[in-house]
Design a protein around this nucleic acid. Structure first.
Length: 1146
RNA sequence: AGUCCUGUAGCUCAGUUGGUUAGAGCACUACACUGAUAAUGUAGGGGUCCGCAGUUCAAAUCUGCGCAGGACUACCA
């Protein structure tokens, strides 16, 4: 054990980072933090897997610091916190990266490059930046087990996924269905929402739009719409995609929206008609100018369209009415052409009646299904159901359709017009933007038939394929789904038991999302991912879901017996052997699993569904898959699940947070996590998103190299609540370094300097509290309050508040007050009880702060802890991260003491302010201050802090005046908090009355203890609690006041005081000279001072005082000092002397 | 478009259950202090608490409607 506390020249946090990291590595500190907690209760934390195919950014430091803080804190609290790193390795970003690197597209896979080679490229590419990730993780001080991470492409991981999928399959939660999804005909592929959200995908385009006229079928139910008219009635509906009109099978109205029935004319043909549209949109179609005109004033071809409103109806009245097919090209196979209610219908634009084409709109499909409306479908040559548009983006050619179907359902003449036409010119290589579009041709045809009410160009925002840059279609595609809607209520219920930070993300963003939950589209038609373990017979009557490798092996055996397969790729696999080697004998990825043909119960061939599963399933399954559950860890699983804590960015709400929650609910009927912090984004200093493209991304490596990770972490955590976005500013990191770490370091340096001089090693027993001076008891009281507060903040997952509390304590209380006031106690004098108490107190503060702050600033706090402990050996633990969290002692917390020290600070601050006003330096002692006492309890409080204040402000005496009558000018103020609830409305008048009170009234009030005022002829009796009386001024004195405290200062300088002031000036000059001469703090000197009439007296009077303060063994007043060996000093205005000091060798 | 977050000094942020002079740090200006010294103190300037309306004796704080920025989700006539 060392006897001296280490001394530093300056604070280099970057170096501390490196030193401590080295130390952790050499001593396996992280491992020890787990080993020493062996057998203790465990705290379960899940690490969300990042994808290592990109470089980590500064925002990762944020998320990981949060995770680390909680885990380190829980370790201090004695929990064993196992945390396993993981890598997300599947999915589109990886594939896109590989395709870019190899210069291929999806279409080339299987032709230019084999699926096998492609997947191999993905497998290596995805771990490209593993080293950088590990490096950052280590440098930023994030403790997580990187030795044995879980990897989602690992066969064991996939096996668990399959097991989970089989659970879902057996619970009947997996189904294959079709939905409307974004689809790029130009690329021939469906697009994920991720792809659709690439920047620049949504573009403004100008399209031809049409308002179609859907003739109301006249029957009993619709008779009210035909009442009193001599022409046909039409629902009118707007579309930006007229090419979907032939696929219309329904119209949607809002049940509460008001509609009007209007007699008018077809604007293009002049034929009389009645149209029905939303009332609030009326003037979008009819010009107000013509409101007064008679109907008959219109003639075909006129611009001024006349109209007359006949009746009003709400949407609910229209529900169920039938209409005639607008464009009868193909007949639907089931019920169609009915008005239905759509919850999404608005009157923002269009007509308030929405055209529904279930094959080309997600909403359309949904409401049509609910209402039992058929989509308009065709049958192709194979008899398969198809939308009217094929996958290249054109209307099906007749020869590609089933003959029978054409005969029965297709109006050949009408359909032939459009067969083979592309719905967007962009899909047809022979067309340009200038050519007439299918939309235009359809609109023209409708005009001719008097079935269009308005046709115009319209600019709107439309998604485009990011790869081909051509517009996408919403198109029905087959997919496998998880029927999450079935467990929606349970998920909502379970969500309520989760502690979300912030709460709003859980209740709002996540809660609302659950309420509107749709089924989870699991299918991805890609190559690099977890294959769906489902095998289906050709006629789709038989289906098999595989839940383990062993099961698959057995099924292949059966298939071989049936003669469908000749070899078993799993032949070498040994069931029950969970070793890496055993699981590396095969590959569960495509294309290997694609080639497996299984056999059904009835002996049919079963083929694998080619889909992969959504990568989010991979990550959502990590609680189980990282443990290879249930193939391993089945018995102790309750110790591994659920997580007590997770943390990720708020962007994961519908991603990882959702998939974790969904899988846990469906497979285990429980939550996957109990507490969660979802942090906001890290933006640049101006509030813009960071991106490599804009060049405003902050590089975490160079930042840590320059500042060390502690200030970075501290800044990120304390600057804003984690869930708020952080405007990242390097200036802020620098400020934290200087203000917090600089101050803490200074405080340590101060302690170290004197403790080493005095040989303090904390070898003495703790000085009893009663023997410690006021100021020590005060800082210890605050320290214990701090422990309590910090613990509460950490427990509540609010590290920001914890950090801020620590910071305030260190900067304001410990450094700016305690150390400042106590400096003299450490310097010189005997090694007394008081001095020991001072050392012990300061030591305790530093030691405790190092533990409290260690979760946030793991490096420097460990250094500080080690430096302190290296001498005292108070802890057997070698690192701050292995100790136990301090317990606060309520006995030591003394709120009265804290209160009066607060008064002391105020009095000091006011007194220093007064000195400034009259320009008297603090070095000049003054005789007294006077404090008026308004409340008897103040006296003992002030007595207790008297000495602290006096020495701080350099005043000899503190006097109290209790009988203040006539001396003080007082001011009275109403106490709104007590008066308000009592008197309510007349509060303002009461305040005015109180304001009118004069000095005599106030004195009388104080004497009587009550006072009556009259407001509105009502007597109102005031008690002392109802008002606040403060002293404002003492005539003839220099006075300052703040709240109840008033300080008056005697600024007369007597000759005696002046002499003492001069002595102090000398001390100051001598100390400066010592320092300039590079003397050690403990060096003794010989001192010579040149005589001057103004100072001689003072020097002689205070010779001894000057001597002890400057360690001068001799002081001489001399006639003359040679200028070259003495230093000129100005003691006061116009008084100059010379001093000379010489080191005395002992 | 929906949901959520944010809006307080030039900048970054506090501001408890509504209570009457709205705070801190940084930056700026001036002055001090200093054997903790690449620190520190005191004072000053700087505010439409995003806007409007409401509730209330009293609103930065509660309610409603907007505006601006951000995030996520969706994209629909």
């Amino acid at each position: 054990m060392s006897t001296k506390f280490p001394e530093y020249k300056n604070l280099d946090l970057s170096q501390v980072n490196k030193d401590i990291l080295k130390d952790w590595n050499e001593n396996n500190t992280f491992e020890k933090s787990l080993e020493t907690r062996e057998g203790n209760p465990s705290f379960v934390f899940y690490e969300g897997p990042p994808s290592a195919n990109g470089m980590p950014g500064i925002h990762h430091v944020m998320a990981r610091a949060l995770k680390d803080i909680v885990c380190r804190y829980k370790t201090l609290k004695g929990f064993q916190v196992n945390r396993k790193a993981g890598w997300d390795t599947h999915g589109l970003p990886v594939e896109l990266g590989v395709e870019k690197e190899l210069g291929i597209t999806k279409e080339d896979i299987g032709t230019k490059i084999s699926v096998d080679d492609y997947n191999l490229a993905c497998r290596t590419n995805v771990m490209k930046y593993t080293r950088e990730w590990e490096d950052l993780t280590s440098k930023m001080g994030y403790w997580v087990n990187m030795e044995e991470p879980y990897i989602t492409y690992d066969n064991r991981y996939i096996e668990t996924l399959w097991w989970l999928l089989k659970q879902l399959f057996e619970k009947d939660l997996l189904y294959k269905g079709y939905t409307i999804q974004p689809f790029s005909p130009a690329a021939g592929t469906g697009l994920s929402t991720h792809e659709l959200n690439q920047p620049g995908c949504y573009k403004d385009v100008k399209d031809t739009t049409a308002v179609g006229m859907f003739k109301v079928a006249r029957d009993e139910k619709s008779e009210f719409l035909y009442e009193g008219i001599d022409c046909d009635a039409y629902f009118i509906a707007w579309t930006t995609t007229p090419w979907t009109l032939p696929s219309n099978t329904a119209l949607a109205v809002g049940s509460k929206i008001e509609y009007v029935r209007v007699r008018t004319f077809n604007p293009y043909t002049g034929i009389p008609c009645v149209v029905i549209l939303a009332k609030s949109l009326f003037y979008n179609f009819f010009d107000k100018k013509y409101e007064g005109l008679e109907l008959g004033e219109y003639e075909a071809g006129d611009k001024r369209l006349t109209y007359k409103t006949l009746s009003e109806h709400v949407g609910a009245d229209l529900e169920g009415l039938r209409y005639e097919q607008l464009m009868p090209l193909v007949k639907p196979e089931g019920d169609a052409f009915r008005v239905i209610i759509g919850d999404f219908v608005t009157t923002e634009d269009g007509t308030g009646i929405v055209h529904i084409a279930p094959t080309f709109g997600a909403d359309d499909d949904r409401v049509a299904k609910v209402a039992g409306i058929s989509p308009l479908i065709l049958r192709d040559k194979e008899g398969k159901m198809q939308p009217m548009v094929d996958r290249t983006g054109k209307f099906f050619k007749i020869e590609d359709l089933s003959e029978e179907f054409v005969k029965e359902f297709v109006n050949l003449e009408a359909y032939s017009e459009y067969a083979g036409r592309f719905v967007k010119n962009a899909y047809d290589p022979t067309l340009t933007d200038d050519d007439a579009t299918l939309d235009i041709d359809i609109a023209v045809a409708l005009k001719k038939e008097s079935l269009a009410f308005k046709v115009e160009k319209h600019v709107h925002n439309y998604p485009h394929c990011w790869r081909t840059d051509k517009p996408i279609l919403y198109y029905p595609l087959d997919s496998w789904f998880i029927e999450t809607t079935k467990v929606r209520d349970r998920m909502i219920e379970l969500n309520k038991t989760i502690n979300w930070k912030p709460k709003s993300t859980g209740e709002g963003r996540f809660g609302k999302w659950l309420e509107n939950l749709q089924d989870w589209n699991l299918s991805r038609s890609r190559y690099w991912g977890t294959p769906l373990p489902i095998w289906v017979s050709e006629d789709r009557s038989e289906i098999k879901c595989i839940g383990s490798v062993a099961e698959l092996k057995a099924e292949i055996e059966k298939s071989m017996t049936a003669g469908f397969m000749t070899e078993n790729i799993l032949a070498d696999y040994i069931e029950g052997d969970n070793s890496k080697e055993n699981y590396e004998k095969f590959d569960l990825h495509r294309p290997y699993v694609d080639g497996l043909i299984l056999v059904s119960e009835t002996g049919q061939k079963l083929f694998r569904e080619l889909d992969l599963i959504d990568v989010w399933f991979d990550s959502g399954a990590m609680p189980y898959a990282q443990q290879h559950y249930p193939f391993e860890n089945k018995e102790n699983f309750d110790k591994l699940f659920p997580a007590q804590f997770i943390a990720e960015g708020v962007d994961q709400t519908r991603g990882w947070f959702f998939t974790l929650h969904a899988i846990a609910t469906m497979c285990f009927d429980g939550v996957a996590f109990e507490n969660i912090i979802s942090n906001g984004l890290v933006l640049d200093a101006k509030g813009n998103k960071m991106s490599k493209r804009l060049g405003n991304a902050v590089d975490p490596f160079s930042t840590i190299e320059k500042y060390g990770s502690d200030p970075l972490r501290w800044y990120m955590i304390t600057n804003a609540q984690p869930w708020d976005n952080l405007k990242f500013d390097l200036g802020g990191v620098e400020e934290v370094r200087r203000k917090f770490f600089g101050t803490l370091y200074n405080t340590y340096s101060f302690f170290q300097l004197y403790a080493n001089v005095d040989g303090f090693t904390y070898s003495e027993a703790d000085v009893a509290m009663e023997q410690r001076p006021e100021i020590d008891r005060w800082i210890l009281s605050l320290l214990n309050s701090l422990i309590k507060e910090v613990e509460e903040c950490y427990e509540a997952y609010e590290p920001t508040r914890a950090g801020r509390a620590i910071q305030d304590f260190v900067n304001e209380n410990l450094s700016n007050w305690y150390v400042r006031l106590c400096r003299k106690r450490y310097w010189g004098g005997d090694y007394s009880i008081d001095k020991i108490s001072a050392y012990q107190t300061l030591y305790r503060c530093l030691e405790t702060v190092s533990v409290l702050a260690s979760p946030i600033a793991p490096f420097y706090m460990d250094q500080l802890f080690k430096d302190l402990n290296s001498v005292t050996g108070r802890f057997t633990e070698e690192s701050v991260h292995l100790v136990n969290f301090p317990k606060y002692d309520p006995e030591v917390i003394d709120s009265e003491l804290e209160e009066r020290m607060d008064m002391a600070q105020k009095i000091s601050s006011m007194s220093l302010g007064l000195r400034r006003k009259v320009k008297i330096r603090v070095r000049q002692p003054l005789s007294k201050i006077i404090i008026p006492i308004l409340d008897d309890s103040m006296v003992p409080q002030l007595e207790a802090i008297k000495n602290i204040v006096l020495s701080e402000i350099n005043v000899k005496e503190m006097e109290f005046i209790t009988d203040t009558t006539g001396v003080l000018v007082k001011n009275i103020k109403p106490n709104f908090k007590t008066l308000g609830p009592k008197y309510g409305k007349i509060m303002k008048q009461i305040a005015a009355e109180i304001g009118k009170m004069n000095q005599e009234d106030i004195v009388a009030f104080e004497k009587e203890g009550s006072y009556t005022i009259v407001v509105n002829n009502e007597n109102i009796s005031l008690t002392p609690e109802d008002v606040e009386i403060v002293s404002e001024d003492i005539p003839g004195w220099l006075v300052a006041n703040e709240g109840k405290l008033t300080v008056a200062m005697d600024v007369n300088i007597t000759d005696e005081l002046r002499k003492e002031g001069i002595a102090r000036e000398f001390i100051n000059r001598i100390q400066n000279l010592r320092k300039d001469s590079d003397f050690e703090v403990t060096d003794k000197i010989k001192l010579q001072i040149m005589m001057h009439d103004s100072i001689n007296d003072a020097v002689l009077t205070h010779k001894e005082y000057i001597g002890t303060q400057t360690l001068a063994v001799s002081i001489e007043l001399v006639e003359k000092l040679a200028e070259n060996e003495a230093k000129a000093v100005e003691i006061e205005q116009g008084v100059e002397s010379f001093i000379k000091i010489e080191k005395v060798s002992e």
